[in-house]
Design a binder for these strands. Structure first.
Lengths: 333, 333
DNA sequence: GAAACTTTGGGTAACGTTGCCCACTGACGG
DNA sequence: CCGTCAGTGGGCAACGTTACCCAAAGTTTC
């Protein structure tokens, strides 16, 4: 079942059938109707691989670091909602939390002729990102960086971290610990959202005259658990913990519960991302909302624009976070 | 950068280069070495779309109903772990929770020449599944059905539901409500995991001489919330709720907490799937473990076998669930 | 020592689609 | 009445890869 069959069935040339398929110039309304009918009668579907060989595949690749982090589906929803009415389809790579996996996945997506990529919080070097973006239209989500090759969508993580610190300090907390996602590469310290969040925390603490106290693990449930254990092993226990992501806060909750500490009576806890789990009744986690859905729609729009015009100057969209206070934060005793 | 460049650089024919690429018969060790070196020196990567035109794309498509449900990443991990050492890449479609979206996504995957599909708890009709499986090697996860066209991997949901009912009944509960994912199509009643789970609940209740009490919503957090509200509005409140999935239990928790009810003092709660959130300290949800990782590895293996031999008789793998009792279930007062 | 195989290499024609070109028609302006 | 032009339709050659074939040389078998 190919375009040739459609053309034959409609009694026109394959070229004409192709024009109709692509809504290209040079087909009369009568011709359009004839071909459309043939397509429907035959149940024809164009073969993306063959299209890819000649140009477009109508496929957008999305890479994200961790499918378990409930924040990312929000972004994804924004993306798919925006792309729903277009001819593009979204395909998602499996989680990749390190540079090697990221390289493999982006390579695989390039090999498959994707028309564009959305990279969510990638860890690869900026040089590699730019190299990639020169090959294929790319939107980078979360990296605080300006590039002439790719568009970016970020949330103001510095402000977000300050929102949390100010909230806790206003409640009366003086010793506020932070669990960050470890960032070793100095080149990326200023770019990665986790690093920026940690830096925002540090600055906000200093602005309040407070001493920062940072534990480095990862933005996972496991990381939160281990981070909290480290914090609890300190000689002096903090009165509040600012977890760099909600998923981290989930792990912290487990560790606190194991240690027989209650939240917020013994210790306050704040997260980041305002995921649906933060709103859960028995958890009711104070968190920072960074409007994942908007991030997704913005990324999709930027990508479509870039696919349409690869020479367009790059854009950088920054969204502002808001604090959502819930029951895990309270004045210290 | 094509295979022609590689061949020229290695001083051999494109056919020879292709043979090396595919590990095909008819290339001497010396030739292999020469071509391999050329590939590395040039940084060549084969273009999947062109390969697709001639046969394989080395891509496996995965469809799942809800990316927010933390059970599915377990299956996905099993899949990707198994496929890591092969030439295949996994691409995931965005969540699709209805027949129309499923159709669109599977069409898109077929259009893109995927070598195989893994469909997790699809809702489409059996006829459509079989039609699809005739076009492309397919493994169906979760559907309790035997087919001559596709392999299946399922968990014994009847037993799983009985585990929960027996556990609660043993604790002394007599009025145990169940929140199910609504299934209207009679043809699928016997196939869908949610329907089988509900049926297992019904049978286990009868076996215990208890009266089933079922509320139909969806397997989402929202569904759990709404289902619990319905249950709480009853004249006589049950002493225990069996949520058909952990994600449903999360929504139930919110509703219970809003109603000022404490778990398990006022009401016991059990989930299904044993997701990482169930283990969370402050939640500590009694749940049923269905070994998602194993499901994923089994599905991957079956798919690889089917790709290798499309005529092989279809297999059906059934795994057994286990109960994981935690703190949300206790004897009624 | 001839016939039959095996090994190694390469030539060629697809796979399904689209971009680029050209040809024809009828209409319009000078 | 001729030149120009928009509108319409189709021919053809790619795109990058591989399956299928054939040829030459070497190896085995009887």
């Amino acid at each position: 079942m190919t375009i040739v069959d459609v053309a034959r069935h409609a009694g026109v040339s394959t070229t004409a059938a192709s024009k109709v398929l692509r809504n290209a110039y040079g087909a009369s309304p009568a011709m359009r109707a004839k071909v459309q009918r043939a397509i429907e009668e035959l149940g024809y579907r164009p073969y993306a691989a063959a299209r890819g060989l000649r140009g477009q595949t109508y496929t957008i690749g999305v890479m994200l670091p961790d499918i378990r982090n409930p924040f990312f589906p929000e972004i994804l929803d924004g993306l798919t909602d925006t792309l729903r009415d277009t001819d593009y389809h979204v395909l998602l790579g499996p989680s990749c939390d390190n540079e090697k996996d990221e390289g493999k996945l982006t390579d695989a997506m390039v090999d498959r002729g994707m028309d564009g990529l959305v990279l969510i919080a990638p860890v690869m070097s900026k040089a590699r990102l730019e190299h990639l973006a020169k090959t294929i239209p790319t939107v980078v989500v979360g990296r605080h960086t300006r590039s002439s090759c790719y568009d970016t969508v970020t949330d103001d993580d510095t402000t977000g971290a300050a929102l949390v610190v100010d909230h806790l300090a206003d409640l009366g907390h003086r010793h506020i610990a932070h669990i960050e996602h470890h960032e070793s590469d100095p080149a990326r310290l200023a770019e990665m959202p986790n690093a920026v969040r940690a830096d925002g925390y540090r600055k906000a603490m200093h602005a309040r005259g407070l001493e920062p106290d940072i534990v480095s693990t990862t933005y996972t449930q496991e990381g939160g658990y281990l981070g909290a254990r480290q914090i609890l092993a300190r000689p002096e226990r903090p009165t509040a913990i600012f977890a760099g992501a909600d998923i981290v806060a989930m792990g912290v909750l487990t560790a606190l519960s194991e240690a027989g500490l209650s939240v917020p009576d013994d210790i306050s806890l704040a997260g980041y991302d305002n995921t649906s789990f933060a709103a859960l009744g028995p958890i009711s986690l104070t968190s920072v909302d960074q409007a994942g859905h908007h991030i997704g729609t913005a990324a999709a729009r930027l990508l479509l624009e870039r696919i349409a015009d690869r020479a367009r100057p790059t854009a950088r969209i920054t969204l502002s976070p808001t604090l959502v206070p819930r029951r895990t934060t309270a004045p210290p005793h």
